[in-house]
Amino acid sequence: MAHADSDRWTRLIMLHSRVEQRLAEALHRDSALGLSEFRALCHLAASSDGELRMQEVADLVGLNQSTVSRLAGRLERAGLAERCHCAGDRRGVYLGITDTGRERQARALPVYEATLSGALDEAAASTDRELAALTRRLRLPT
C-alpha cells in the first residue's frame, strides 16, 4: 500500500506542477499578475470588509511571513492593495484590496478559471491512465 500511496502522491505533485505552471503563465500574460498575487487578491475580495491580517493572507496563500510581506509590497506598488494597522492593536497589520485591485482580480478571474479547466481537461485526457483517473476523481462533485 505504501508504494501505491507514493505513486499517487507523485502523480498528484506532477498534476499540481503542470496546472500551476499553466495558471502562472496565463495570469502573467493576460493580467500582469503572479499566481500568489492573484490568489491574495481573491481572498481579499472575498473577505467581508476587503481586508485580512497579513498572517491570514500568508496562511491562505501558503506563504511564510517574509514572503507575504514582499507580496504585499508588490501589490501596494501596483496600487492593488494597501497595508494598514489595526485600530485596536498597532502591531496588527492588515492588507486591504483597493478598487483597482478588485477590478484587476475580477478581470483575471475568468482567465484563471478557463485556464484551470483547460489544464484539468488536458490531464483528464492524458495517455497516463493513472494521471487521467486522478484528475477525474478530483473533479467529482463534493
Results as ranks from 00 to 15, higher is better:
R77A: 15
R136M: 09
M1A: 14
L80Y: 09
L120M: 14
N64W: 05
R29V: 11
R90N: 08
R90W: 09
I13R: 15
D121F: 06
A133L: 12
Q105P: 00
S48D: 13
R104Y: 02
G34P: 01
A132G: 04
R90F: 09
V93S: 06
E56Q: 14
S36E: 11
L60K: 11
L35V: 07
A40R: 00
A123G: 02
S36K: 10
L134Y: 01
R18V: 08
T115W: 03
L60S: 02
R39D: 07
E122L: 10
L131G: 05
G101E: 03
R8K: 12
G96P: 02
S48C: 04
E56A: 15
L60P: 01
Q65P: 03
G118C: 05
L109E: 14
H85E: 11
T98D: 02
R139A: 12
A114K: 11
A32E: 13
G34E: 07
L80I: 06
S31F: 00
A119P: 03
A119L: 05
A108V: 04
H85D: 08
A133F: 08
L134I: 15
H43A: 08
P110W: 04
S66D: 10
T127D: 15
R139F: 00
E56W: 06
E25M: 09
L23Y: 01
V61P: 00
A132C: 07
T67F: 07
M54R: 15
D59V: 10
A133K: 09
G34R: 02
S47D: 11
C84H: 13
A87I: 11
A132W: 07
A26V: 04
L138V: 03
